[in-house]
């Protein structure tokens, strides 16, 4: 079915039309993430410009560690989902998508809770950084959850199963990992400095 070409290393590469399309989409997605990443990076840099490395003593460190672990775990389930779909295992993939969505929502809930109990205001230097950075990240979490849910809803008939068909799933999952990568940098930036 799929046309293949063999590279010098003996590795087979799919050169079908569908694979070509995935390659194009993949580059587009990565460029988008790079661009989006620049926005996050600018906010992270601004945090040091206005507040130095100071953090608020009122931060709930355990809550921070908790939601961070949750997001990391959701990246793992997202990986499981994508791997399952690519290998034709739709039912496991869908379950893992749901698990990812659930943890994403819990993460979002954690952020909302943290905002509601925060004992510092957005008008302080640190608060400015904290609320703007977590807010922007939470917005990306919500859009990520939306894409994952969309994928879950549409994957029931098996049209995203196997090889290049799984690209829409892979795209949503790559986006989700990106949201996690951002948090990998935001977590120490916002919580772990002194």
């Amino acid at each position: 079915m799929a046309a293949t070409a063999t590279l010098p290393h003996g590795r087979e590469v799919d050169s079908s039309h569908a694979a070509r399309r995935v390659r194009i989409n993949r580059l587009g997605l990565w460029l988008f993430l790079a661009s989006d990443g620049a926005l996050f990076a600018l906010f992270a840099a601004s945090r040091f410009y206005i507040a130095g490395t100071a953090i608020s003593p009122h931060l709930n460190q355990l809550l921070g560690l908790g939601i961070t672990s949750l997001l990391l775990l959701s990246s793992f389930t997202a990986y499981r989902a994508e791997t399952a779909f690519t290998h034709g295992n739709t039912s496991h993939g869908r379950m893992m998508l749901l698990a990812t969505v659930l943890m994403g929502l819990m993460f979002f809930g954690g952020v909302v809770y943290e905002w509601s109990i925060a004992e510092f205001s957005p008008s302080e230097a640190y608060g400015t950084a904290f609320f703007s950075m977590t807010g922007m990240h939470a917005f990306h979490v919500v859009t990520g959850v939306f894409f994952l849910l969309l994928m879950w809803a549409r994957s029931g008939d098996g049209k995203f199963t196997g090889g290049t068909n799984a690209w829409p799933i892979a795209a949503a999952v790559i986006y989700w990992h990106f949201v996690d990568v951002v948090w990998v940098f935001f977590y120490p930036t916002l919580y772990l400095l002194k």
């Binding site: 799919d14 694979a19 580059l27 990246s75 790559i174 990568v181």
Partner: peptide
């Protein structure tokens, strides 16, 4: 997780 190398190595058959 994100398989960045597929950007330059193409899709596996």
């Amino acid at each position: 997780f994100m398989h960045v190398s597929k950007l330059w190595r193409g899709e596996e058959a």
